[in-house]
Simulated assay, not measured.
Amino acid sequence: MQTKLEFLLDKIKVLENELVDELQKQQEEFAYEVTKRRVYFEENVIIRHKEYAKHLFKYITDAKLKHIISAPFIWMCIFPVILMDVTISLYQAVCFPIYGIPKVKRQDYIVFDRQYLNYLNLIEKINCAYCSYVNGLFGYLQEIAGRTEQFWCPIKHAKRIKNLHSRYQKFTDYGDAETYRSKLELTRHDFNDL
């Protein structure tokens, strides 16, 4: 029998899928289509977008001083982020086959598509690529960590947590020793929903 918590988690999953479907409807509204991971706009939309592009010189001269000063601090994060990307990808490549955990597809999380927006100038496109990479990487890391946690310690927390990862609903309840021991091996390999 499904618990109320499992019911709510399933409901959240359904709503998340519905949200993604709704977001995809923007393709019709803004006249673009995605083919083989590339975005194509109608020609009249491209022309209209170019009218909204802010020229580089104007973009730089309009920038606030505090934004210019903070930029190196934002960009210096790229080095630990790349190291984290390499490390976690190597970890997954080596360990997931050993544990029998399905690998996380990096391309499902790290998406570069804002370069097709003609209303962005070069600096904005570079900044958008950076944000896409870092935020996508964090989602990729969370999914790898969630699958790892499902294998090694699939127990829900007693304390309230701010954000649940995608595997959390598979975990046994905190304090339920009997279920943990009796279903640990089953839970470790329960990736049928992927």
Score class of each variant (00 low, 15 high):
residue 6 E to P: 05
residue 6 E to Q: 13
residue 7 F to M: 12
residue 10 D to W: 01
residue 10 D to N: 13
residue 12 I to Q: 13
residue 14 V to T: 03
residue 14 V to N: 02
residue 15 L to W: 07
residue 16 E to C: 11
residue 16 E to G: 11
residue 16 E to P: 04
residue 16 E to N: 14
residue 17 N to R: 06
residue 18 E to F: 14
residue 19 L to Y: 11
residue 19 L to P: 00
residue 19 L to I: 11
residue 20 V to E: 06
residue 21 D to R: 01
residue 21 D to I: 03
residue 22 E to C: 13
residue 22 E to Q: 09
residue 22 E to F: 13
residue 22 E to K: 09
residue 22 E to V: 14
residue 22 E to R: 11
residue 23 L to H: 02
residue 24 Q to F: 06
residue 24 Q to M: 15
residue 24 Q to G: 09
residue 25 K to A: 04
residue 25 K to W: 03
residue 26 Q to C: 13
residue 26 Q to M: 14
residue 26 Q to R: 11
residue 27 Q to R: 08
residue 27 Q to G: 07
residue 27 Q to D: 14
residue 27 Q to Y: 06
residue 28 E to K: 07
residue 29 E to S: 11
residue 29 E to V: 13
residue 30 F to V: 08
residue 30 F to L: 09
residue 30 F to E: 09
residue 30 F to H: 10
residue 31 A to P: 01
residue 31 A to D: 13
residue 31 A to E: 14
residue 31 A to S: 14
residue 31 A to I: 10
residue 32 Y to N: 01
residue 34 V to D: 04
residue 34 V to A: 04
residue 34 V to T: 09
residue 34 V to W: 00
residue 34 V to E: 08
residue 35 T to A: 09
residue 35 T to S: 12
residue 35 T to P: 00
residue 37 R to I: 06
residue 37 R to K: 14
residue 37 R to C: 02
residue 38 R to S: 12
residue 38 R to T: 13
residue 38 R to N: 14
residue 38 R to E: 15
residue 39 V to D: 05
residue 40 Y to C: 08
residue 40 Y to R: 02
residue 41 F to E: 03
residue 41 F to L: 02
residue 43 E to H: 01
residue 45 V to N: 02
residue 45 V to Q: 01
residue 45 V to C: 04
residue 45 V to M: 00
residue 45 V to D: 05
residue 46 I to N: 02
residue 47 I to G: 06
residue 48 R to M: 14
residue 51 E to H: 07
residue 52 Y to D: 14
residue 52 Y to I: 09
residue 53 A to H: 02
residue 53 A to C: 15
residue 54 K to N: 00
residue 54 K to S: 01
residue 54 K to E: 07
residue 55 H to Q: 15
residue 55 H to K: 12
residue 55 H to E: 15
residue 56 L to D: 10
residue 56 L to P: 04
residue 56 L to C: 05
residue 57 F to T: 02
residue 57 F to V: 11
residue 58 K to V: 13
residue 58 K to P: 03
residue 58 K to H: 12
